[in-house]
């Protein structure tokens, strides 16, 4: 498969994987640590959505599905599929616990992306494309426009019934 097309598909799969799992696991509902709340409120102050801001803050403060997706992709590239993803899930879980996070989002993200990488390899998309894809996917959330991204994340949280009750 053409490398550019493979990367575009990987971006979409990585984006959906980590955004849906992180939202489902309640990242927009509440800050896991105080730093996440500071980021969430700062994003809201700049015109963003609080739930989306909390999502962005939680991603920064602990390894959630975004980190799980990236680490599993890198581990699958390094030591193979699915062993890399399984090892990554353990490492992400340890990182989560160290960052005051129960660890559900990170490990789930690592395991689901391992399944996705395994399935995608049948159509010629390998772990390397997923590493690039995840970096680009996280740039859309954290690297372009925080208020705009937070509004989108807030809408997704609202649809999934995970919007924050904080004001």
């Amino acid at each position: 498969m053409n490398e550019i097309i493979a990367i575009i598909i990987a971006v979409v799969l990585c984006w959906l994987n980590f955004v849906l799992i992180d939202t489902w696991m309640g990242l927009p509902e509440a800050p896991g640590v105080k730093g996440a709340e500071v980021i969430g409120r700062a994003v809201k102050k700049r015109g963003g959505d609080l739930a989306g801001g909390l999502f962005q803050g939680n991603i920064v403060c602990s390894p959630d599905a975004s980190a799980g997706t990236l680490l599993a992709s890198a581990a699958c590239y390094t030591i193979g599929t699915p062993e890399g993803g399984l090892v990554a899930a353990v490492l992400v879980y340890a990182g989560n616990r160290l960052c005051a996070d129960p660890g559900y989002a990170g490990t789930t993200g690592a395991l689901t992306i391992t399944c996705i990488i395994y399935a995608a390899s049948y159509i010629g998309i390998g772990p390397a494309e997923f590493i690039v894809g995840m970096v680009l996917a996280i740039v859309t959330i954290q690297g372009i426009d925080h208020p705009l991204a937070s509004k989108l994340l807030g809408k997704i949280a609202d649809k999934l019934g995970r919007h924050t009750k904080l004001t």
């Binding site: 090892v87 353990v90 879980y93 660890g103 395991l111």
Partner: peptide, 28 residues
């Protein structure tokens, strides 16, 4: 419940996940 906020160590999570990960490490 709600499981996503629970710190309780259970059989499904994280014991099974750790078992898979540790097995993968040794296999590799």
């Amino acid at each position: 419940r709600p499981m996503r906020y629970s710190w309780t160590i259970s059989i499904i999570f994280p014991t099974s996940i750790l078992a898979l990960g540790f097995t993968a490490m040794l296999f590799k």
